[in-house]
Amino acid sequence: MEKNTRMGTNRTGVDMAPMLSKEMARGARELTPAQQADPTAYDSMVQEHVREAGPLGTVPVPGTVRGALKSLLDKATGHNPEVFINKLGERLAYERSGVRFYEAAIRKFEALRDTEAAGFPIDELRHIRNDEEAHFMMLKEVIAGMGADPTAQTPDADVAGVAGMGIGKVLHDPRTSMAQCLEMLLMLELADNDEWQMLITLAEDMGMDEAARFGDALQEEEEHLATVRRLYKDSLIAQASKGAVRH
């Protein structure tokens, strides 16, 4: 069924029920007692928890201290190597989830191939999906090569997963449109680009050799960003212009 933006019976705003809404607003204004309560109470209660709370978790201690890890520790003299491992773990998780997010979009667009997605270059999304998988595999090698555990979920990997929950929901909902999905992929790529740059900066700062390998990935991510930005723009413009669907 058609998923693109159209006018309909959206009931969420006050204009859909003007009489009821007017009465509701009047009641709120007249029947909400003036309160003496401390307006900063919410902030204070949250801040008390912030001060008392520990972290999400830790970066795992390597199961075996192999030569590679020792080399990492040696290189990272004057730095905290766990910061690097944490960020590597995050990138790995992000790329791995990214594969699944692209698969969700591809699956949906294939289903719409005879309608909204007619003429849409799905192969461009497949190409990006494969790149994300290759990045995941590369990061796995890098992490394992350092003697760390690529199957562990580091704290920043956890955060990336939490942040991605909304993106996943939009992509997986059968009711969301192509443009809505492409907007999610654009958000993914925007953050992905900056995070690869951040990883390179961190690697260079810590004197890690991996910076060059990550540069190749960043270059591909820049291409992804340009592609998704173009596809999203075309999709929106196609919706806005009555008649022909363009990509």
Partner: peptide, 22 residues
């Protein structure tokens, strides 16, 4: 704590002109 000073208005409490307009 969560509702201290809360007054519902159409469009959330950040929509400060809403209640005057209603």
């Amino acid at each position: 704590a969560i509702a201290a000073g809360y007054l519902w208005q159409p469009g959330t409490e950040l929509n400060r002109d809403a209640i005057r307009a209603a």
